[in-house]
Computed example of a mutant assay.
Amino acid sequence: MSSSDIFIGETLGTAVLILLGGGVCAAVTLKSSKAQGAGWLAIAFGWGFAVMTAVYMTASLSGAHLNPAVTVAIAIKDSDWSNVPVYLAGQLLGAMIGAALVWVAYYGQFRAHLTDDSIVSVPREEGMVDQHAAPNAGPVLGIFSTGPEIRVPWQNLATEIIGTVVLVLAVLTQGLNDDGKGLGPLGALITAFVVVSIGLSLGGPTGYAINPARDLGPRIVHALLPLPNKGGSDWGYAWVPVVGPLVGAVIGGGIYNIVFA
């Protein structure tokens, strides 16, 4: 794989991942969306299918890591860090592009949602949950990035670490192609269902980022977009879905080398 193939593949793949994953969050959340209120099951499966689509689309180019945690875990397994910066750059850029495309696709729904007094004027203390209950979190931030239901930093961090360890161990033991550098055809399907499982089982406390680029790139886009009444981007929490998955990747990669290699 050339550096250009890696960068293009990771940018395209992560953009599709966030477009479809963030898209299901927008569909479930936003006023005047036909899927509004479809619930957590739709979100978990939406993200799983987003992973599957993006991986099948770009695996031949870059191995379809689409996640800095996966890239770091594979680098630990192989003791090869030479292409890690290229992977990370493509993933972050792709995540930002995907988030911007969600805004374009749901432009009218964003405006309807964020100009509805019943949504933007509800006091924080009157039952707003998830990202809405967090300080400095706007009423649509959960479409772009994750946030805890109960803000206990050590627990939130531990949840992200645990979920990422499960993900990277599944990728390393079941998902890699023949050269071990990325996801194979069967691995894409397995990984997609692992993501669904993590969402259903471990997603409740934090919204399961398990991918630093998935959270950081769209959070940056949320901060930049001209959304009316969007509220803050909750930068005080932003370190958790970045640090947690990276720590989980190191732990998962270490477990693989000790137990499976």
Rank of each mutant, 00 (worst) to 15 (best):
D78H: 09
L202K: 09
N83T: 10
G203C: 05
D78S: 13
S3V: 01
V243Y: 06
S4G: 01
L183M: 11
K77N: 03
F49K: 09
M1D: 11
Q131F: 12
I76D: 10
G254A: 13
H132L: 14
M128Q: 13
L167E: 03
T115K: 09
P123E: 13
L88R: 03
A99Q: 10
S201R: 01
D130W: 15
A134Q: 15
A75T: 08
G138C: 01
P205R: 04
A42N: 12
K181W: 06
G127Y: 02
G48F: 05
E149Y: 14
L225S: 09
G22I: 08
A133Y: 10
Q36S: 12
P153V: 04
G22S: 05
F110S: 00
V221K: 10
S233H: 01
F49D: 05
A89V: 14
F110L: 09
G163N: 06
P148R: 03
L189R: 02
A27F: 01
I18Y: 08
P68D: 04
Y208R: 00
V166H: 05
A15C: 12
T53P: 02
L88M: 15
V55N: 09
W40N: 15
V166G: 06
P148C: 03
G163F: 08
G98P: 12
W40L: 15
G9Q: 12
G138T: 00
E149G: 14
G127F: 05
V171S: 07
T146N: 11
V168F: 02
L176F: 11
A95M: 07
V28M: 02
G236W: 00
G9A: 08
L216F: 15
A133R: 14
G22V: 08
A54S: 13
I97Q: 12
T173Y: 13
L92V: 15
V194C: 08
G46D: 03
G127H: 02
I255E: 09
V84A: 14
Q109A: 09
A188S: 13
V16E: 01
F193E: 06
F7Q: 00
G21S: 10
L216M: 15
G46H: 08
V28D: 14
V104Y: 09
V86K: 02
D215V: 03
V120C: 08
G207H: 01
A50H: 07
G217N: 07
S233C: 02
S145P: 08
L88A: 11
V104M: 12
A105Q: 04
G232S: 09
A44W: 11
L93E: 11
L66C: 06
F49N: 06
R214A: 12
E160T: 08
G13H: 06
I251F: 01
Q131K: 06
I150A: 13
G207F: 00
Q91G: 10
S197H: 04
T53W: 04
D130I: 12
G231Q: 07
V196N: 04
A249F: 00
V55D: 06
G48A: 14
Q155F: 12
A105G: 05
S121A: 15
H65C: 11
T71E: 02
W81E: 05
S33K: 07
W40M: 15
H65F: 01
A238D: 05
V250E: 04
A50I: 08
V28F: 00
V104R: 11
A134E: 05
A249T: 09
N257H: 11
G204I: 01
R124G: 11
G9E: 07
V165A: 00
I161D: 10
I97P: 04
V84G: 07
V120Q: 10
G199W: 10
L186Q: 13
